[in-house]
Computed example of a mutant assay.
Amino acid sequence: MVAQQYLAQVLEEYRRLDRGGRPRCSYQEALEQFCIEVMRTLKATTQRRYGTSFRQLDPFFGRLLLDAINKARLSEFVAARRKGGATGATIRHDLATLIGVCSCAVAWDYIDANPVKAFD
Results as ranks from 00 to 15, higher is better:
L65P: 00
R48K: 13
V10Y: 08
R24K: 12
D109R: 15
R55Y: 01
A79H: 12
C102H: 01
M1W: 04
R16I: 10
R73K: 15
A8G: 05
A118E: 11
A44G: 00
I91E: 10
S103R: 12
D67T: 06
S75D: 14
L66G: 06
F61G: 01
A8M: 08
S103D: 14
A86R: 07
N114F: 05
A68Q: 15
R49V: 15
W108K: 07
F77Y: 15
L65Q: 12
A107W: 04
V78Y: 05
G62D: 02
T46L: 08
D112Y: 09
F77C: 09
E76P: 09
G100V: 00
N114R: 04
L42W: 12
D120T: 04
L64R: 11
Q56F: 10
E37Q: 14
S53R: 09
L57E: 03
V101P: 00
G21T: 08
R40K: 13
A79I: 07
P23K: 11
C35D: 13
K71M: 09
F119P: 11
W108N: 03
Y6N: 13
A72G: 07
L11K: 15
V38Y: 07
A118C: 03
E76S: 14
Y6C: 08
F54K: 00
A8P: 04
Y50D: 01
P23T: 08
T41G: 11
R48N: 09
R16T: 09
E29N: 08
R81I: 08
C35M: 15
C25A: 10
T45W: 11
A3W: 07
Q28Y: 00
D18R: 02
R92M: 04
N70I: 07
T52H: 09
T90F: 05
A86T: 01
L17I: 02
L11A: 11
Y50C: 02
K43D: 08
G21V: 09
A79F: 10
R19F: 06
L65I: 03
Y50K: 07
Q9N: 12
G21N: 08
L66N: 06
D58W: 02
C25W: 08
A107F: 04
Q47S: 03
I111L: 08
R40M: 13
L57Q: 06
M1L: 07
R24E: 01
T52Y: 13
E32V: 13
G84Y: 01
T97K: 02
Q9P: 00
R63Y: 09
A79C: 09
A113S: 12
L31H: 00
G51A: 10
R49Q: 12
R81N: 08
A72P: 02
R92A: 11
E13T: 03
R22N: 14
T45L: 09
A86P: 01
A3T: 14
R55W: 02
S26P: 05
C104W: 05
D18W: 02
E37R: 14
L95T: 00
L7Y: 03
Q33Y: 05
L98Q: 03
A44E: 15
R81H: 06
L7Q: 13
V10S: 07
V2I: 11
L65Y: 13
T87W: 04
F61I: 09
A105L: 03
S53F: 05
N70E: 14
V78I: 12
V10L: 11
V101R: 00
F54W: 04
L11Q: 14
L65W: 11
D67P: 03
A44D: 13
V2H: 14
